[in-house]
Design a protein around this nucleic acid. Structure first.
Length: 428
RNA sequence: GGAGGGAUGGCUGAGCGGUUGAAAGCACCGGUCUUGAAAACCGGCGUAGGUUAAUAGCCUACCCAGGGUUCGAAUCCCUGUCCCUCCGCCA
């Protein structure tokens, strides 16, 4: 959520910034509701003050009246009238406040100044490229063919068990998948100073509101049908970021850096017919996620570091990639700036997204009330939150399969993964 | 699943219908004292919103959350959430 005070005081500036994201801020509506709210608030508060003062005076008055044997009913009458007036004023205020909240909760984060303008992914800007796509002297297979050939990647069985957009992995492919997870977690915990964390894969709606998936994007989620208001996580970002919901951290604790492996569940409603082949877009996939909580002045540089941590995984795996900065129109609801990392897929002859690293500034922190105590002021202030995939495991697996395939359909295991595979060097 | 007991400020913990935004202790900050520190003593010390030039005052809300009773609720009632103890079941 944006700071309501900031929106109120600089509506034109906010509106201009949000336009980059393709969002039209209804200044008229905000001004109107804001002015109305202020009037109603003042009215409600002064009525309440009157009511409180009267109630306070009543303690003594009733005692005295009783001592004299007087009827106390007349004394209560005025109190009753004040109560009714105050409740009425509260109701009027609540109605306006709710409208204002509903509106503000659905306003996206303001993009950084450096974010390029643009409507869609066409307008994203490449910032760097690493590695040279390999040239093959044979016809490349995609991961589906490669998996079928060794019999260890099976989409048909998954369809039988559950439905479309699921997969079954067996044997060395399942092991390679697991090796990738171990490798990623070890790299981030041992080399980049992240603490490994394991969290629930089912979360409540408050957590989803905190990170910004709710209220706007409920259709992307799997919701449990019992009456407990729970959802499967679409990303570990949700439980891990909410670790510090309603918390006040000490300045000495910062930065907090978590690395989390988890499955992710996405309904993929609205992506029918898109990436239907293979494991690019699945309802269930696994991911190693990095999450950081930092001092507000550090988040800009932290995003660069965090993106670098994700890139290093691809470098160690020797997979060619490029990094792009998302344009305003492609930027997510909660993000102020996002870098996507795209890995080279020989079967598609193009780069495909394998990681997304974002700075949310105080947007999520405000929704979650995740704060730190500033020693300079002694006051709690909002943190900045960031996260990034490092990496999406399923997509990394298929990138390894395709980039490391041999003419006979076997797959060479990248050097850094061999220790995690019992020094095995090839699959199939 | 059954039977009980809880939830109060950064922490511990009183209060159980009216001068309680909340005793007391700890922690923290400022001061006195001291060569320095500790101890002792004095003072301060929640968050959010409104008003305001103001981080000054004043006002409002908040004692798990949401409803209710009452002129008046941290205190009484209802619902929910979470925690604890015992029994049962269970990976």
């Amino acid at each position: 959520m944006l700071d309501p005070k900031y929106v109120r005081s600089q509506p034109e500036t906010v509106a201009a910034a949000l336009a980059v994201k393709g969002f039209t801020l209804d200044i008229e509506k905000l001004n109107q509701l804001g002015a109305l709210r202020r009037d109603l608030l003042e009215k409600a508060q002064s009525l309440q003050a009157e009511r409180n003062a009267y109630a306070k005076s009543m303690g003594k008055a009733i005692g005295e009246a009783k001592a004299r044997g007087d009827d106390i009913a007349p004394l209560k009458e005025k109190g009753e009238a004040l109560k009714i007036a105050a409740l009425k004023a509260d109701d009027a205020l609540d109605a306006v406040q709710r409208q204002l909240d509903d509106y503000l909760r659905n306003v996206p984060n303001i993009p950084d100044k450096e974010v390029p303008s643009g409507k869609s992914e066409e307008d994203n800007v490449e910032v760097r490229r690493w590695g040279q796509p390999r040239t093959f002297d044979f016809d490349v297979r995609d991961h589906v063919d490669l998996g079928e050939r060794c019999g260890l990647l099976d989409f048909e069985t998954a369809t039988k068990i559950t439905g479309s957009r699921f997969s079954v992995m067996r044997g060395d492919i399942a092991r390679l998948h697991r090796a990738l997870i171990q490798f990623m977690l070890d790299t981030h915990t041992l080399e980049h100073g992240y603490q490994e964390i394991n969290v629930p894969y089912i979360v409540n709606s408050e957590s989803l509101f905190g990170t910004g998936q709710l209220p706007k994007f409920e259709e992307d989620l799997f919701k449990l049908t019992d009456d407990r208001d729970l959802y499967l996580i679409p990303t570990a970002e949700v439980p891990v970021t909410n670790v510090f919901r309603d918390a006040i951290l000490d300045a000495t604790q910062l930065p907090v850096k978590f690395a989390c492996h988890s499955p992710c569940f996405r309904s993929e409603a609205g992506s029918y017919g898109k990436d239907t082949r293979g494991m690019i877009r699945q309802h269930q996939f696994e991911k190693v996620e990095l999450v950081q909580f930092v001092h507000p002045e550090k988040s800009t540089e932290t995003l660069e570091q965090l993106t670098g941590h994700a890139e290093l995984i691809l470098q160690k795996l020797e997979l060619p990639y490029r990094t792009i900065i998302l344009c305003g129109g492609d930027l997510g609801f909660s993000a102020a700036r996002t870098y996507d990392i795209e890995v080279w897929l020989p079967s598609q002859q193009r780069y495909r997204e394998i990681s997304s690293c974002s700075n949310f500034r105080d947007f999520q922190a405000r929704r979650m009330q995740a704060r730190w105590r500033n020693p300079e002021t002694g006051k709690p202030e909002l943190l900045h939150t960031l996260n990034g995939s490092a990496l999406a495991v399923g997509r990394t697996l298929l990138a390894v399969m395709e980039n490391y395939q041999q003419s006979d359909g076997s797959i060479t295991i990248p050097q850094v993964l061999q220790p995690y595979m019992g020094d095995q060097i090839s699959i199939g």
